[in-house]
């Protein structure tokens, strides 16, 4: 028996919205520790990793580890039937063919349940090395979204350069080129969540496809902060912490000069 209850059901809506354009089908693995999902996009250029700890749920029970093969677009359609303030409960048997989703309105006046058919999905699980990154940038997620959206109008590839002073996002295309530099905030600058913080061992410059960075920014509603982890010649990690429950991390392979 698997049962997981989230008072803030809208969180689940936001998570699926953040993944479904990148990944069409995925196995969500449920265990005593919580929910995890690892999936690559169809062209194997990026990888999305979701982690939701059991302690982040209001109720969590998982007697036996199970894997839920989900069509994320279809799950998104069902989650659209939930109100934004609804409590969402997920339920499945030990050898499930379906996932039951129950939505309860805050005053308990409306209770609905839906069953989503599960799929057998063959996936390749990748071992992600535990890397110490040379640069870690923490910045407002809305700022990152704006930069990616703005630069995507000009070109396809973004050069991200991280130095101690700041992070520079550069793009060039047929119409011209552009740069946006965000500088490290000084300690006195406003709210913690609005700050740009850079931890750097050595400067890093890497090229990335803006199209994929754009997919990642669908996670912006999940939190005020995004963290970028970079080292030379390895995939960037774009990590969105989800307050109190876990995180969603996107890995994107760089573009490399031939």
């Amino acid at each position: 028996m698997f049962e997981a209850r989230l008072t803030e059901g809208s969180l689940l809506k936001k998570i699926i919205e953040a993944i479904k354009d990148l990944v069409q089908e995925a196995n969500v693995d449920c265990s005593e520790e919580g929910l995890t999902m690892q999936a690559m996009d169809a062209s194997h250029v990026s990888l999305c990793s979701l982690n939701m700890r059991h302690g982040g749920f209001d109720h969590y029970r998982c007697d036996r580890s199970i894997s839920l093969g989900l069509n994320l677009a279809n799950l998104g359609k069902i989650l659209k039937c939930a109100g934004n303030d609804d409590v969402v409960t997920l339920k499945a048997e030990d050898e499930p063919d379906t996932l039951t989703l129950m939505f309860e309105s805050p005053n308990q006046e409306r209770i609905s349940d839906f069953e989503l058919k599960l799929m057998d999905i063959e996936t390749e699980h990748l071992g992600i090395p535990n890397e110490e990154y040379k640069c870690t940038i923490s910045m407002p997620s809305g700022e990152f979204q704006r930069i990616v959206r703005d630069l995507a109008v000009i070109g396809e590839t973004c050069i991200i350069t991280c130095t101690k002073e700041g992070v520079k996002f550069s793009v060039s295309g047929d119409l011209g080129n552009g740069n946006v530099t965000v500088r490290q905030s000084s300690a006195a600058d406003g709210d913690e969540k609005d700050q740009v913080k850079i931890q750097m061992e050595e400067p890093v410059t890497l090229n990335f496809a803006l199209r994929y960075l754009g997919f990642f920014t669908k996670a912006t509603p999940l939190g005020s902060t995004v963290k970028l982890h970079m080292s030379p010649d390895v995939p960037i990690v774009v990590e969105y912490p989800i307050d109190g429950i876990g995180s969603i991390s996107y890995f994107l392979a760089p573009k490399i000069d031939e």
Partner: peptide, 14 residues
């Protein structure tokens, strides 16, 4: 020109 690398060239299959 830059070439898009695949995720599979960085992370090994489990």
């Amino acid at each position: 020109a830059t070439k898009q690398k695949s995720m599979l060239s960085f992370f090994n299959k489990k």
